[in-house]
Amino acid sequence: MSPVTVQAVVNGDQVKRSIPPNLLLIDFLRDEMGLTGTKQSCEVEVCGACTVLVDDEPVSSCCYLAADIDQRRVETVEGLVGTPFHNRVVEAFLRHAAVQCGFCTPGLLLTAKAMARREAAPTELELREALAGNLCRCTGYHSVLQALAEVLGSEGPA
């Protein structure tokens, strides 16, 4: 395999690496960059645990070539830490008990971040549609929706 050079911005930092073309983005982030906040679960683009943002769009890093982040911006949950958005979400998640095991949480936060950039105040339906691809086996979703609806500035589900 001929290596591929990628030059990207990961969580605000310039990164340049020579990588094999078959390297998946999730393995690049976790193994090469040490960013283990991105979680591996279903491996078939269904569960949303491995969600990261590439140029502001959420993607499943388990089925995305690391070679394709060349000349792009990547955001992982580590990049959110300390931002006003993250602080508000953490506070709301704790208050609504929207976290139990926490494995789905990084993916949920990044999907919500992409949503927040796109819609000023999403309706409950828009929020549900955006989050429909992030599976959580602990909370039953209601508390997650309540917390995110609050943070994103719309009314929570009744």
Binding site: E45, V46, G48, P58, V59, A114, E129, A132, G133
Partner: peptide
Amino acid sequence: ASQIANVRVRAI
């Protein structure tokens, strides 16, 4: 198009 798979699949 808005109902295909999930937001991540639709993005790419």
